[in-house]
């Protein structure tokens, strides 16, 4: 139950929504599936005076454009993605990532745009503050950081936990943004500021309108893994996504995107490991070495009961498996199981 009153707007187009958001200023928030905003309003991490619901706007089905780019409306439900033949054929890593989000009801409600625009998380502020942690933290506009009492940098070391963002970044996807100045496109990675206080780089009145996934290059392979303690109904301890291409020899890495989510304020690209990988022959030993390098390159925040050292230990192993899967797929030797979902 949300214990304060707010106004609701239900525009019919994203342009109208954008105009409403701009008019209402910082006191307005956009609502798509609601699975992130409404719990946050209930615990008053955010307290918008106006909610601009996109509930009246129907997304179009994902389409493949003439250049092979897959265009997905931001309002596309995660459940639609996991079940879409086009997505499973053209960008199976995104279908897999969507499949790994929370539980079925959340996937039925939550949208791809909403999943990308979700707030960062922290055990301390993701709860009601009736009597626990009464003084507001930095993120709530206060002067304290509960998990890091020595944090005097007026920042917030909360964690951005989207399951789809690492996959989209590894796929080299872009987002399309509707705003007061019209429509703009930018890589998904540039959507994130890296600040836990304001994790998204969106201007006033800006709304995600679409996600654009470029066509896969020849000999492209992907690997994805969400580490968590439970199956389903949970955010990740670490989310690993890799997209790589091989040279014609089927062994040498021509280029790679390696992303880890749910360990920092934004999804992290492991550029040093990517560079080390490029030009390397991806045999078993090299893959293990690269995974170890990835675990070293990432500097995870301890979060949700997981220590920094264990998150690294876990990444080291699962990243190796993810890289092996990606390499096998790029070679075209991926098995039926890891070609699709592995439940």
């Amino acid at each position: 139950m949300i214990l304060y009153d707010f106004d609701l707007e239900r525009p019919n187009t994203l342009e109208e929504a954008s105009a409403l958001l701009r008019d209402k200023g910082a006191d307005a928030r956009v609502l798509a599936g609601g699975t992130d905003l409404l719990p946050n309003m209930r615990v008053e991490v955010v307290r918008p005076a106006t909610v601009v619901s996109l509930g009246a706007i129907t997304p179009r089905d994902p389409v493949r454009e003439t250049d092979g780019t897959v265009r997905i409306d931001a309002l596309t439900r995660l459940a639609t993605l996991e079940g879409s033949d086009l997505i499973r054929a053209a960008c199976p890593m995104l279908a897999e990532a969507a499949h790994r989000v929370a539980g079925n009801q959340i996937r039925q409600m939550g949208t791809l745009g909403g999943n990308l625009c979700q707030e960062t998380r922290c055990l301390y502020y993701n709860q009601k503050h009736d009597y626990q942690f009464k003084a507001p933290c930095y993120k709530r506009g206060g002067e304290v950081c509960y998990p890091y009492p020595n944090n005097d940098r007026d920042t917030c070391w909360s964690v951005y936990m989207s399951d789809t963002a690492p996959a989209l970044i590894a796929l080299g996807a872009e987002v399309e943004i509707v705003g007061p100045g019209g429509t703009r496109r930018q890589p998904v990675e540039q959507l994130f500021t890296g600040s836990g206080l304001t994790p998204h780089a969106l201007g006033a009145g800006e709304i995600l309108s679409a996600v654009l996934v470029p066509p896969a290059e020849p000999r492209f392979g992907w690997g994805y893994h969400k580490s968590s303690r439970r199956g389903g109904l949970e955010f990740g301890m670490a989310v690993m996504a890799v997209g790589l291409t091989l040279d014609g020899d089927g062994a040498t890495c021509r280029g790679a995107r390696m992303v880890i989510g749910a360990v920092r304020e934004k999804p992290i690209r492991l550029t040093a490991t990517e560079q080390a990988m490029t030009g390397a022959k991806l045999d078993e030993a090299k893959i293990a070495e690269l995974a170890a390098a990835a675990a070293k390159e990432i500097n995870p925040l301890p979060h949700h009961g997981f220590t920094k050292s264990y998150i690294r230990d876990n990444i080291k192993i699962h990243m190796r498996r993810v890289l092996s899967e990606a390499t096998a797929r790029a070679r075209g030797t991926g098995t039926a199981e890891n070609g699709g979902h592995h439940d």
Binding site: G103, L123, Q132, R229, R230, G232, E234
Partner: peptide, 26 residues
């Protein structure tokens, strides 16, 4: 899976997202 995490008498995970009861998968 399950653990009530506490610090200085405060409960850190007062939700079923972070107090991990078994789901149907476990």
């Amino acid at each position: 899976l399950e653990e009530i995490m506490m610090k200085d008498g405060y409960t850190l995970n007062p939700t079923w997202l972070d107090y991990r009861m078994p789901t149907i998968h476990e």
